[in-house]
């Protein structure tokens, strides 16, 4: 049986900013249809690696292939339509309405999104179509990030990249939105790369977890394997946090009201 060619391939990607080497020679393939979480401590180079995909950062060495083509060879506008990007800071344009925010990508490509399509995109992220005319400052944090996801999906992308998309949200919203994105990933047949510093989130949502440490890829495991102890010291230190939390919670449950 032949494996399908990867949708995304990092090939010896290195990014230097002056003295700092943010990413040092990362190579890995991401298969079409997979949901990959990229985990690591803050400053380990996750965002930088992610940004090489839509050429917001150009590698100092190595290359990134998207569908077999070097991303730097693709016209940026075309590339960024095929790659939906959800930001950590959400990054809605405060002077655009929700509808205008969602339609910005196609608009830059010279295409006007009809209201039905906006309503459809809002429905995908479970927002009422009436929100289309609202301004971002009239939305809650969770609603804003839903719009952020809708905006990333507006161009009909093949690949969805997300940089700590739920970092600023409260736990309930965060959980709901995580599930929603996973569901969209399935129904729309997307390939998704999600950066997060939260190992629990990575383990629960992804099919595959990549761990970065000081610019290098140090583990590439399934959630199951990681929980079973694979991936090495750095990965295990990260995985130990949710595991221990789960054990303590289970212990609390077993004790009923607790020791006091």
């Amino acid at each position: 049986m032949e494996t399908p060619p990867p949708l995304l391939r990092f090939d010896g990607v290195t990014c230097r900013f002056g003295e700092v080497t943010a990413v040092g020679g990362v190579s890995c393939d991401i298969a079409a249809g997979s949901f990959v979480a990229l985990v690591g401590a803050s400053g380990s180079g996750k965002s930088t690696l992610l940004k090489t995909v839509n050429t917001l950062v150009t590698p100092s060495a190595g290359r990134v292939l998207f569908g077999g083509e070097a991303v730097t060879a693709l016209p940026p506008a075309r590339l960024r339509r095929r790659v939906g990007y959800v930001f950590q800071g959400i990054g809605l344009f405060p002077h655009f309405s929700v509808a205008e925010n969602i339609a910005i990508g196609p608009r830059l490509a010279g295409e006007k999104l009809p209201p039905e399509r906006i309503a459809e995109l809002l429905a995908l992220v479970e927002l009422d179509p009436a929100y289309a005319r609202r301004m971002p400052d009239a939305l809650s944090g969770g609603q804003r990030q839903r719009v952020g996801v809708a905006r990333a999906l507006a161009g009909g992308p093949e690949l969805l990249i997300m940089d700590e998309p739920f970092g600023a949200l409260d736990p309930l919203t965060r959980d709901a939105l995580g599930r929603k994105v996973r569901e969209l990933h399935e129904t729309l047949g997307l390939t998704t790369v999600m950066v997060t510093h939260d190992m629990a989130e990575a383990l629960l949502l992804a099919d595959r977890v990549l761990v970065m440490d000081r610019g290098a890829l140090v583990a590439d495991e399934t959630p199951h394997a990681l929980l079973a102890g694979a991936g090495g010291a750095v990965a295990q230190r990260l995985a130990s946090v949710p595991r221990e939390q789960a054990e303590r919670l289970a212990a609390l449950e077993g004790l009923g009201e607790g020791p006091r």
Partner: peptide
């Protein structure tokens, strides 16, 4: 807001589009 500026790049705006559509307004 640097987040908004990053978003402008992220959605694929050129320098001029960024100036006209985001920075200036």
């Amino acid at each position: 807001d640097p987040g908004v500026l990053e978003a402008a790049d992220g959605v694929g705006m050129t320098r001029w589009q960024k100036l006209a559509l985001v920075e200036a307004p």
